[in-house]
């Protein structure tokens, strides 16, 4: 039996095609365990060795990694949802309805997308708390904390822009509440302190820029859709690259 398995393994691995993909043996020896980190672009996010203290689940609670995982999950389910959704106020609501009634796995993907979004917001908050409590923002990691704060803001805005897309009462009014606040921005909003003094009106202030109009309507839906599916994820991806690269360079701030 063992011989047969060995033969099959040899058949699969001992050829030009396999070796062009995987350039080393199974990671069962220390040398190959190092090589797998060098030669795999995703695993390359990790160093070859890591401080033992950083391996303690009680130290990191896996929160940063989980946040990234939720982001990936959201990207995958989000792409699926984009096939069935048109950001048109006459269609959007029915498209979401169809996800729950006529599209195979539509409701599963929508539910997963929603729960992953909630989970990501929560895990970002908890990750930040963990990083604070372990003092991991202290030199030389100050700037990475700043990048992290920006990612926190992006996570919240991403969640919020997604909230409008189903175009139901919940969506419309949650975003209306939010955009009312934009209107009250000092200087930049028509209802904010000093806003009218410098010439802000409902048709040229920051809320107008955000919604593309004076009410939450078609332009707002399109803006939120483009930001949610394209603009903000791109910015997040860039900042995440910086965030991870910095961790890779500075190492875990682990104990020991």
């Amino acid at each position: 039996m063992k011989e047969i398995i060995a033969k099959i393994v040899k058949l699969i691995t001992d050829n030009q095609v396999y070796r062009s993909v995987f350039r080393h043996g199974f990671p069962t020896t220390d040398a190959n365990r190092a090589l797998v980190m060098f030669s795999n672009v995703i695993l390359h996010l990790h160093p070859v060795r890591v401080r033992r203290g950083a391996l303690k689940i009680r130290f990191t609670w896996c929160l940063g990694g989980l946040t990234f995982f939720f982001f990936i999950m959201l990207a995958i389910t989000g792409v699926f949802l984009m096939f069935y959704y048109v950001p048109d106020t006459r269609r959007a609501y029915n498209d979401i309805k169809d996800l729950g009634t006529v599209i195979y796995f539509g409701s599963l993907f929508r539910n997963m997308h929603r729960w992953a979004a909630h989970a990501m917001v929560l895990s970002v908050w908890m990750h930040m708390t963990r990083v604070f409590l372990t003092g991991s923002y202290k030199p030389p990691r100050e700037f990475n904390w700043v990048v992290g704060v920006l990612l926190l803001v992006l996570t919240l805005v991403l969640s919020w822009t997604g909230y409008l897309l189903p175009w139901d009462q919940l969506a419309l009014w949650a975003v209306t509440v939010g955009s009312k606040m934009a209107e009250a921005t000092p200087l930049l909003g028509n209802a904010g302190p000093f806003g009218q003094e410098i010439g802000m009106t409902p048709a040229n202030d920051v809320r107008f820029v955000l919604l593309g109009g004076t009410v939450v309507g078609q332009s707002a839906l399109l803006r939120f859709y483009v930001l949610h599916c394209l603009g903000l994820p791109l910015v997040s991806a860039v900042l995440m690259a910086v965030h991870f690269w910095r961790i890779r360079k500075d190492g875990f701030s682990g104990p020991l």
Binding site: M73, T89, Y93, I96, K97, G100, S107, L108, R110, N111, M112, H113, R114, W115, A116, A119, P166, W167, D168, Q169, L170, A171, L172, V215, V216
Partner: peptide, 19 residues
Amino acid sequence: VLLFLSLVSPAPLEELASA
């Protein structure tokens, strides 16, 4: 956990948005 939550607690969808 996400799969479990998705199955027991589906995403809400209220009435069509109306000003």
